[in-house]
Nucleic acid binder design. Structure first.
Lengths: 203, 203
DNA sequence: CTCGTATGAATGAACG
DNA sequence: CGTTCATTCATACGAG
């Protein structure tokens, strides 16, 4: 059904990323960026600000949510226990097929004169500068797509310090928490029963 | 909207503090309590239990998180101010700010026994008094011993050296909308050596 | 208008 | 302690 939600509600109550912003973020995510540092967040938000209002925290949350959601949606295989979940499937793989309309042109499109006539002006330049800046300052996460403003080829993504082994999910908790545990009774005498390590981070 | 009753689901999976509990915790935090000792945590949780299920670890984590987040958030000096923008509210740095009510009614309200009908009983009255006292006295309460626990051990805590300069939320409730970039800026943090002591409590 | 779904925002719980 | 994970709450939007 819903493919992507363009930024329509232009309301300011909550950040509503524009298609361009989402696109950039998605690209970065695909490139392997999972937990941007403060500086990266800053740069990214600065970059995205060319497409509309954005705050650093928005970028932060975006990555947090995206990562969490991807994983959450991905874990659904539980020992072929049938589970005829009466109901419709409604299980969309979130991690693979991009959830959104693949890539579209990143051609800056004028702010659909909805009712919010923002002044989009020299974004192209800004973006370019931004990218270059990032490349210079950071460990070059992506190449310098100095012209992605027109077509934006997927960020080639160079080989940077991407740690495939960064995930860890250690927790044996199985619900059951309505108890009267006192302070660190559990925390202290807890022994990691299992340690699932998800590796294999291909991109 | 909500206006009150922060918690809703009330499932058992995770502690969902009630408005009253949050209120108390916030007060304590504002009073300068940052890293409660084990006993303090114990006392606090005991008191909070009157408002709903709470474990010591919850209190512990609450302070941990609150402190960490409070610190993490720091108004970053703007630079350039090129985003005039608009706003429309909703922008306080994270932390939990404007989303909540300003004050909860002091009237203890039994947590609509969802299915977690704990023993809420005689505590109600006591806590009601306690809350009112806290609210009325505001932080003055923790300023000095003022008075011992003769009334009803509402929350008689003694403070020794309460740094007059505690914290100053930056999320001013005033304007400040759609600022600019301002994410978590690890600012400097301090460690006001305070020692709030909660003495006596019979509940 | 109500409901379901997508997702931004918040924060409890832990990990290292 | 700072940072990250996981869960929950709130909101926007399109369908019915």
């Amino acid at each position: 059904m819903e493919a992507l939600s363009g930024r329509v509600g232009v309301k300011c109550g909550r950040w509503n990323p524009t298609a361009e912003q989402v696109k950039v973020l998605t690209e970065l995510f695909r490139a392997g960026l999972r937990t941007p540092s403060t500086e990266q967040i800053q740069r990214i938000s600065t970059h995205l600000s060319a497409f509309g209002k954005v705050e650093s925290k928005n970028v932060f949350y975006w990555f947090q949510n995206h990562k969490a959601r991807e994983r959450h949606h991905h874990k659904k295989r539980r020992r072929g226990a049938s589970s005829p979940d009466s109901g419709s499937g409604s299980n969309e793989e979130y991690g693979r097929a991009a959830s959104h309309e693949a890539e579209a042109d990143l051609v800056l499109q004028p702010p659909e004169s909805k009712r919010e006539a923002r002044s989009y002006s020299h974004h192209h330049r800004l973006m370019t500068c931004y990218v270059r800046d990032v490349v210079e300052h950071q460990e070059a996460m992506w190449e310098r797509p100095t012209r992605e403003v027109e077509t934006l080829e997927l960020f080639p993504l160079k080989s940077y310090d991407l740690e495939p082994e960064k995930l860890r999910y250690v927790r044996g908790g199985a619900g059951e928490q309505c108890r009267e545990i006192s302070f660190f009774d559990v925390a202290a005498g807890r022994d990691p029963p299992l340690e699932l390590r998800l590796c294999s981070f291909s991109l």
